[in-house]
Simulated assay, not measured.
Amino acid sequence: MELNVYLSGEIHTDWREQIIKGCQSYDLNIVFCSANTDHDTSDSAGDILGAEQQSFWRDHKSAKVNAIRTKTLIERCDIAIIRFGDKYKQWNAAFDAGYCAALSKPYITLHREDIVHPLKEVDAAAHAWATTPMQVVETLKYLASK
């Protein structure tokens, strides 16, 4: 079975690469997709529609352009992996989790145990919670098994 997996959330560590490489090591039939993970191009996505003088409007425009990508990819995926990292609050990841929940799209959260409390509502709607990328790989291996 082929799975389309959306990788959402924290962009400061290599968790995406760990999951992709782990799934490749098992030769799983999985297609991965993700939001734009490059700060500069994400922040400037709205610039293609015209420059803005105020940072609020630049951010607003870029958020809307990025939302087109995110919305489309989440709607097309079979399952989402939503990572909450240690250094920054990932409001976008929480929003993606809520969107998945609203669409009845299964998702797995990936985060450390010490942030269980602030993520309790997000985790409550998730179909699984993992603490390591390898746990995600093993779960995807089970889901993609023939």
Score class of each variant (00 low, 15 high):
residue 48 I to A: 15
residue 102 A to Y: 14
residue 37 T to M: 06
residue 74 I to H: 06
residue 12 H to M: 12
residue 81 I to S: 04
residue 12 H to I: 04
residue 24 Q to R: 15
residue 57 W to T: 10
residue 88 Y to I: 15
residue 11 I to Q: 04
residue 30 I to A: 05
residue 2 E to N: 08
residue 100 C to A: 10
residue 2 E to Y: 05
residue 110 L to V: 02
residue 91 W to M: 06
residue 43 D to V: 07
residue 140 L to Q: 02
residue 90 Q to L: 10
residue 136 V to P: 12
residue 62 S to L: 14
residue 15 W to N: 09
residue 48 I to F: 07
residue 124 A to H: 08
residue 117 H to P: 02
residue 53 Q to A: 13
residue 138 E to H: 07
residue 44 S to E: 11
residue 105 K to W: 08
residue 26 Y to A: 14
residue 9 G to I: 00
residue 132 T to W: 01
residue 112 R to S: 03
residue 65 V to I: 13
residue 73 L to V: 12
residue 61 K to W: 03
residue 133 P to H: 04
residue 90 Q to T: 14
residue 146 K to R: 06
residue 132 T to Y: 06
residue 3 L to A: 00
residue 13 T to N: 12
residue 56 F to Q: 02
residue 68 I to E: 09
residue 58 R to Q: 13
residue 100 C to V: 00
residue 32 F to K: 09
residue 91 W to F: 12
residue 134 M to L: 14
residue 82 I to Q: 00
residue 22 G to E: 02
residue 27 D to R: 15
residue 108 I to H: 00
residue 135 Q to N: 03
residue 1 M to D: 02
residue 38 D to T: 05
residue 77 C to G: 11
residue 82 I to H: 00
residue 30 I to H: 01
residue 93 A to D: 04
residue 34 S to I: 01
residue 33 C to F: 03
residue 132 T to R: 14
residue 15 W to T: 12
residue 28 L to A: 13
residue 20 I to N: 05
residue 69 R to N: 11
residue 37 T to Y: 02
residue 120 K to E: 05
residue 116 V to Y: 08
residue 136 V to A: 03
residue 45 A to I: 15
residue 17 E to Y: 09
residue 127 H to D: 01
residue 92 N to C: 14
residue 70 T to W: 03
residue 49 L to K: 01
residue 121 E to Y: 11
residue 124 A to V: 04
residue 36 N to L: 07
residue 4 N to S: 08
residue 114 D to F: 11
residue 81 I to E: 06
residue 2 E to K: 15
residue 6 Y to P: 00
residue 72 T to M: 12
residue 130 A to S: 08
